[in-house]
């Protein structure tokens, strides 16, 4: 367990007045408050530490004890045991609206003060709604081509989830009531699920449009022909027009990715032809190409 210098955490001097401590706490709290730094775990950690420092330094009794025992806080253990037991009984009824609950306090704090105390209205521990949870879900691009059911385990609870087709990489969806349990009959928090979509396919994706580059041999490009390509929705036959140019594009309407939350609507598949010039020509081939050249 590591000693925490709460004065350093708040950036104040050991002789700082209560007013200076309050001012420093407010300034840092405004900077790192979780409501202003959504999904920022580092800010959340800092906010908890700032709160902890404020819990200690803004209460004269706590501050005195902290100053007295400081680095030798372990010796304070026996001395304060009885007092701590009383505090812990009180804390069972405390809860926090912004998610900084008892378990959020450091081991150092808990060993010295016995866990989080209700610090009065001033620090605003008033809420009854459960904590919001954040989770990540990693899927493959082909998985999100179709709507699918998933069962997630969040905090030992199983959640059945329907993921709409066409969800984006990095998209966050809110699942109401699947966060932390509410207190005193309050509503549960929400679950925020962030999607990470890996793309191992031949396609590149931009929203509901898919892009692919297809190699085309010289003869099919010149004379035209047919090609079959694999898409997420099966094989598609492509008619190649005669005299197709390198880097020319064709758009296959409705052959792209599903549009998010719009059933039976699909984006387009845009194909770029990449002309492959034959190599290692035989003498006979060279001769024919020369004849062709003369004709031009």
């Amino acid at each position: 367990m590591e000693f925490i210098d709460y004065y350093k955490v708040l950036g104040v001097d050991k002789k700082a007045s209560a007013k200076e401590i309050k001012k420093a706490y407010r300034k840092l709290a405004r900077k790192y408050h979780p409501d202003l730094n959504a999904n920022d775990k580092e800010a959340e950690k800092k906010f908890k530490r700032i709160n902890e420092a404020n819990e200690v330094l803004s209460h004269a009794e706590n501050r005195k004890k902290y100053d007295q025992y400081g680095k030798d806080w372990k010796h304070a253990e026996t001395f304060e045991k009885a007092q701590r037991q009383q505090q812990q009984q009180r804390q069972q009824h405390d809860f926090s609206s912004s998610g900084h609950s008892e378990s959020d306090f450091s081991d150092f704090f808990e060993s010295m003060f016995g866990g989080a105390r209700s610090s009065s209205r001033q620090s605003g521990q008033t809420g009854f709604r459960g904590q919001d949870f954040n989770a990540e879900l990693h899927l493959d691009l082909k998985d999100v081509y179709q709507k699918q059911q998933q069962i997630l385990t969040v905090n030992h609870k199983k959640i059945r989830l329907t993921i709409p087709a066409g969800i984006e990489n990095g998209q966050v969806i809110r699942i109401a009531n699947k966060g932390g349990k509410g207190v005193n009959g309050g509503a549960n928090g929400d679950l925020y699920l962030k999607f990470f979509i890996k793309n191992h396919s031949q396609f590149k994706r931009e929203k509901s449009n898919l892009y692919a580059t297809i190699d085309l041999d010289l003869y099919t490009a010149i004379l035209g022909g047919e090609l079959t390509i694999d898409t997420f929705n099966g094989k598609v036959k492509l008619k190649i027009k005669p005299e197709t140019q390198n880097n020319s594009k064709v758009k296959l309407k409705g052959k792209g990715f599903p549009v998010y939350k719009k059933e039976n609507q699909y984006g387009d598949l845009i194909i770029t032809y990449n002309l492959k010039i034959p190599t290692k020509l035989t003498e006979e081939e060279k001769k024919i190409f020369k004849e062709l050249q003369k004709l031009r």
Binding site: R26, A29, R30, S97, S123, G127, R129
Partner: peptide, 20 residues
């Protein structure tokens, strides 16, 4: 409306905890 509770709680937290 209960749908506004989540935002309302955020406002209360900002008011209480950050004196905004």
């Amino acid at each position: 409306h209960q749908d506004s509770i989540s935002d309302l709680e955020k406002m209360i937290r900002l008011h209480h905890e950050l004196a905004i």
